[in-house]
Amino acid sequence: RPHSRPYMAYLQIKNETYSTRCGGFLIRPNAVLSAAHCVHGKGNVTITVTLGAHNIKKKELSQQHFRVGRWVIHPRYLNYRSGNDIMLLKLKKKAKMTKYVKPISLPSHNETITPGTECSVSGWGQTSVTGHRTDVMLEVDLKVQHKKMCEDSFKGYWCQSMICAGDISGRKSTYKGDSGGPLVCNRKAHGIVSYGYEKSPFPKVFTRVSYYEPWI
């Protein structure tokens, strides 16, 4: 349903030669969480955050636009496969809280989520491997998987700081452009879209937000 995820943030990341999009989510009126790999290694970038959006190509009255004053990548981040794929962005101005723009709650430190729990992921990422992009925010439901599922698939998977989730049928998944968006379980942002194999929709790895709660 349009505007049913008022915490969602759309990130436009640009430098002189490059432009990309990522997701993120509002945790305070002036703070957004996203994935470190969205900006790491891309040089001198400018980041614009749009809140309250459904169709990112339309000038919706609900939208609020912000320049990012500064952002902090986790100090131990090297690349997305080594973990710590988390970034905190501070908006230059505080967002105005409306029915279209509201922060989401975070889990407490080391709060766990049980395998089998149904969670949701929203974003404006590609909807197919052929590169089709969506202008409207879409959502999929994904189940938290047992850690062994990701340990068998990904060498660097570490369950303390990562969550393994996906749709075992392979019909639903996150993809390019969804990075940085939240894995929402029981109305809390438990995960951040991080990585997976490009040609395999299942499983996917999410940064475990509860592990990083003291850093946040």
Rank of each mutant, 00 (worst) to 15 (best):
N15S: 09
S62Q: 09
K93R: 15
S62I: 01
L61A: 13
K58P: 01
I47R: 04
H146L: 05
T174I: 09
K14A: 09
K188H: 00
I56N: 05
E111R: 02
L88K: 15
A36I: 09
V72C: 08
A53T: 13
C38Q: 10
V205E: 05
I86Q: 10
L89R: 08
K58T: 05
K57E: 14
H65Y: 11
V209I: 12
E213Y: 09
G156M: 11
R187D: 12
G156A: 14
P107T: 03
V101D: 02
N79Y: 12
W71L: 12
T174R: 02
M97Y: 01
E139N: 10
P203T: 03
G52F: 01
Q63C: 00
K93C: 01
G166N: 00
H190V: 14
R208L: 05
L89F: 11
Q126M: 13
S173T: 15
S19Y: 07
V140G: 06
A31L: 08
S120L: 03
K155E: 15
T130C: 01
L106C: 04
T98N: 01
I163F: 10
R70F: 12
K92Q: 13
E198F: 10
V209F: 08
F25K: 08
F25S: 08
P214F: 07
G41R: 09
S108P: 00
N110D: 12
L106I: 03
D141N: 15
H132L: 13
G180C: 13
T114S: 00
W124I: 07
S122C: 07
A36G: 08
K147I: 07
Y80R: 13
G83M: 07
W124G: 08
A53D: 11
T134I: 07
S120A: 06
Q160V: 09
I104L: 10
H109N: 07
D135A: 15
V49P: 00
H74K: 11
L61Y: 02
V136R: 12
Y195C: 06
D141F: 07
D85W: 10
H109E: 15
E60A: 00
L26W: 05
L11C: 03
R76G: 13
I27R: 00
C119D: 02
Y10V: 01
W158H: 14
D85R: 13
R70M: 12
G196K: 04
Y195I: 04
Y195Q: 02
W124K: 08
Y195K: 01
D152W: 05
I113R: 00
L11S: 04
C38H: 11
S200G: 02
K90S: 00
H190P: 01
Q64K: 00
K93N: 14
N55W: 01
S210W: 02
G41P: 06
R171G: 14
E118T: 05
K147D: 15
K58W: 06
D85H: 12
K176F: 13
P103S: 05
H40C: 07
Y212T: 08
R1H: 09
V32K: 08
V39Q: 07
I216A: 05
S179P: 06
R208K: 15
V129R: 13
L183P: 03
P107V: 04
Y18C: 08
N55I: 02
T46N: 12
S210C: 04
S153V: 13
Y77E: 02
D135W: 02
I192G: 01
N110Y: 04
